[in-house]
C-alpha cells in the first residue's frame, strides 16, 4: 500500500527538476496545456492525420524537460481501456470504407477509433507533462491567479493531500485485520461494513489533525497565496509559440498539405 502511495506521487517528484521547462512560470505552462487540449479536442473524429502533427508538443516537452517516457506511458495506459471502450462501438457501427491502401480497406470506424486513441494520448500526455514539470503548489497558485473558483481549487488540493491519508489509514487497518484474521488476507464481506465505517471515522479524525497542521503553517482555504514569482518575457514567448503552432496546425493541416504537394508531384 505504501508503495502504491509512493507511486502516486512519483510523478510530482520530477517537478523539482531544473530544466528550461521546469523553470517556466506555472501560469504559462497551465495556459499552454489548456490551449493544446482544447484544440486537440476540437478536431472531428475522422481527422487522424491532422491530429498526428500535435505529437510535436508532448515529444518536445518530454525531451526538453528530461521527463522519462515510460513513467508517463505507464499512466497513459491506465486510461487505455476507457478509450478503447469508447471507440470500439465506432469500429462495429461505422463500417463504410474511408481509404483503400495496398488492397486493404480502412473503415471510418477504424479511423475514428485511432482518432479517439490519439486524442486521449495527446491530452493525457500534455496534462502529465504539466504535472511532472510543475510543483503542485505552483499549479494551485496559478489556478488562483487565473481566478478559478476557490471551491474547485480547495477540493482539488484536499483530494490530493488526503488521498495518502486515506490510503495510509486503510493500510494500517488492513494489516491489523490480517494479523488477527487467522490467515485471511482480504477483508470478508461480513466485516466490510464496519471496516468501511471505521476507515471513514479514522480518516476524518486524521484529516482534521492534518488540517490543523496545515493551518498552523499559514494555510487558509480561500486565501490568495502571496506569490511573488513574476511572469517573464520567456514565459510569454513560450506561451505564444505553443498557441501559434497549435492554431496554425489547426488551420492548415500540415500532413494533408504535405501529401497534396508530394502526391501531386508523384502523379506528375
Amino acid at each position: 500500500m505504501k508503495q502504491t502511495i509512493h507511486n502516486l506521487y512519483a510523478l510530482e517528484q520530477l517537478s523539482g527538476g531544473k530544466t528550461a521547462i521546469h523553470r517556466l512560470h506555472p501560469i504559462a505552462k497551465l495556459l499552454a496545456t489548456a490551449v493544446f487540449v482544447v484544440l486537440v479536442i476540437s478536431f472531428d473524429r475522422y481527422a487522424t492525420l491532422r491530429l498526428a502533427v500535435y505529437v510535436f508538443y508532448p515529444t518536445l516537452m518530454m525531451a526538453v524537460s528530461e521527463t522519462p517516457y515510460h513513467m508517463l506511458m505507464k499512466r497513459f495506459l491506465l486510461t487505455l481501456p476507457f478509450c478503447l471502450f469508447a471507440g470500439v462501438s465506432n469500429l462495429l457501427l461505422d463500417t463504410n470504407t474511408a481509404y483503400v491502401g495496398g488492397g486493404v480497406a480502412v473503415s471510418f470506424g477504424t479511423v475514428s477509433l485511432v482518432s479517439i486513441l490519439l486524442k486521449a494520448y495527446l491530452c493525457v500526455m500534455a496534462v502529465l507533462i504539466l504535472v511532472a514539470t510543475t510543483p503542485f503548489s505552483g499549479l494551485t497558485a496559478a489556478l488562483r491567479r487565473l481566478s478559478i473558483p476557490q471551491m474547485f481549487i480547495t477540493v482539488f488540493e484536499m483530494t490530493y493531500r488526503y488521498l495518502a491519508v486515506l490510503a495510509g489509514e486503510a493500510a494500517a487497518m488492513r494489516t491489523a485485520y490480517a494479523l488477527r484474521g487467522a490467515g485471511r488476507q482480504a477483508v470478508e464481506i461480513r466485516d466490510m461494513g464496519s471496516f468501511a465505517g471505521q476507515l471513514l471515522i479514522r480518516s476524518i479524525d486524521r484529516a482534521e489533525r492534518v488540517y490543523h497542521a496545515m493551518v498552523c503553517r499559514g494555510y487558509a482555504p480561500g486565501a490568495q497565496v502571496r506569490a511573488t514569482d513574476k511572469i517573464t518575457l520567456k514565459d510569454i514567448g513560450f506561451l505564444i509559440a505553443v498557441c501559434v503552432l497549435c492554431v496554425v496546425f489547426r488551420i492548415i493541416g500540415p500532413v494533408e498539405l504535405f501529401l497534396k504537394i508530394f502526391g501531386g508531384i508523384l502523379s506528375c
Binding site: 502516486l8 506521487y9 510530482e12 503542485f136 495518502a164 491519508v165 486524521r206 490543523h212
Partner: peptide
C-alpha cells in the same frame, strides 16, 4: 500529521 506532502522538500 505534519508531513502531508509527497516529499520532504514540499
Amino acid at each position: 500529521d505534519q508531513l502531508f506532502m509527497p516529499y520532504i522538500y514540499d
